[in-house]
Write a protein that binds this DNA or RNA. Structure first.
Lengths: 182, 182, 182, 182
DNA sequence: CATGAATGAGGGTTCATTCAT
DNA sequence: GATGAATGAACCCTCATTCAT
């Protein structure tokens, strides 16, 4: 039963992930259940509340993203690593709805405020920023609040307007130019 | 009766404007009707659909914003004028919900795509951009798609995270730095 | 429109009344809507909440019952009038579910406590009691709390066990014997 | 395994007993299972249906109550014994929810009708009544149907309105006065 | 024309019961 | 035998939209 339950939990999460990526935070529980090929009750067994399910997905997404920063933290070129990570976050936002909301820290939990993205994510960004600044490639006066505001904005824009790769690159290049040390 | 009808149309629009600014795109038709002191049916007489009403407001807002660009088009300092207008748009976005969506041209009508903001707005921005580039204050290679993407992103971020004036200024300064000619 | 709305309000109340009388407090809103030949939303237009609808019915029932005490308050035989009213309340309880709950003051609003039946009802009973005591037909030491407890119990019993007229009379006779002055 | 099964049956019954006493007939099967420290399926192994489980408890309760009448059947004062037993039943009703329903014989199984309380209970009451009547302390014309109706009503009232000891005594005194031989 | 009452699909959630493990 | 995960009907309630008045 443990195996079954775990399998279903995963199916629910995957289905919710997909539906969320496609339709955004407005997903209905029924839609998730159908996508997962599972009864409504099964979702509620694993997640007490709609909110909880969406949170779980979004937290996991952010966790994975933050985790993916690992190699970049020891990359040879700290500046490139910094910009690469920001690009990655925006890229995922363009492909998966509701990530931008997560990065923005709003929508799911209004209290979260600007820096409401999980501590790991924030820490990863901060570490990458510090390395890039230390390496002299990023303005020394760049602070987290503005950086997060910029990242959040880029993610929201990328999701909302479905930036394609080319537009994303050109737009981020402009932003990144503003962040570089002169 | 023509006068009556027109008066009601205006009342509905004004009420919807207010409610939309306060509560965002999730406004209910009933809320608008109550705010306007008008029956639900009256709204539907003037606007066939919830979508249509919101579109109308958003179009009007954008129109007014575009209109406000007029003086800036003949301002003494084209570069300052260009940045001032962008700042104004972001500023309004932070104060009035759903403007960011308008500028993004998405959410209401997904077909609209990136440049879905009304032609006037787009034209105003383009004209300001051209003047600023000609004056040599803005990178010559800045093109409209990226500029609009940036503006849209900033608006969304400002609305979502309720940028205060200080954060807005600091964040926009970073963006603007990336747009300046070197 | 006023006429229509009022007609529907009445239909909803009548339907709810019937269904409530038949099935008790567990009625579903859908059952009421179907019985009334009305959409679900129509119920919610008139009554903001399930609770509110049931309250309204029950309050009206109690009000009518209390009102029906009027003539008895000036009846020639105060003692007979007193017992007649109690009998009537129990009688209605046996025929219409949820009245007993109302008289018991529980189920709908737990705060109500023992004397939670509307003030009018309570006042009517108290007045009838006083007249009957003054006339010397009812024990002078009978107080309201016990009287209401007895009445509530009889109503609950009559509803639950569907007392027929004969059983009701015999049972109430026993109770009334205990209330009579010796 | 027989022992195991029997032990579980008892645990389920005890848990259901407690939960029922506290929360009334609305108990959920899950609540019972958790209280019993047993899986949901285990309950269904022993009781085919929610109804059946509740029935079983109620039957057991009534059985124990009936059993407790034993000493009273040979008590020195038959009249006092009679009233004492009735008081005890009402007392338990006030403390343990769903007993009143049991005594009323309704709610769980509507077919049961008035005398639906187990034969033992009924027999105990009848025997006590007979002794009390023979002793001349209770009206000779008191019959079982009315007596059970009264008892049922008192139990329901005591449970619903949470009679405290004082109110219970005063109310029962009134009822008992109506039952006494003159 | 204006009104707002009516509609009913759809939303989140609960829970008795079944059955794979 | 025991477990508890899965099921899905049912519940209460909201809201865009229609249409009788």
């Amino acid at each position: 039963m443990r195996a079954d339950a775990e399998r279903n939990r995963v199916r629910v999460l995957e289905a919710a992930e997909e539906v969320l990526a496609r339709d955004g935070l407005a997903v209905s529980m029924r839609a998730v259940a159908e996508r997962a090929g599972v009864g409504l009750g099964t979702i509620y067994r694993h997640f007490p509340t709609r909110e909880a399910l969406l949170q779980a997905i979004v937290v996991e997404r952010v966790r994975r993203l933050a985790e993916s920063a690992g190699p970049l933290l020891v990359a040879a070129d700290p500046v490139e690593a910094f910009f690469a990570f920001l690009t990655r976050v925006v890229d995922v936002s363009a492909r998966k709805k509701a990530l931008a909301d997560a990065v923005s820290g709003a929508g799911l939990d209004p209290k979260e405020g600007l820096g409401g993205i999980g501590g790991d994510m924030r820490a990863a960004i901060e570490a990458l920023l510090l390395r890039a600044q230390t390496a002299g490639g990023v303005r020394a006066d760049l602070r987290m609040p503005e950086l997060l505001a910029l990242l959040s904005a880029a993610c929201l824009g990328a999701e909302r307007n479905q930036w394609d790769d080319a537009l994303r690159d050109r737009t981020l290049d402009l932003i990144f130019d503003g962040l570089r040390a002169r």
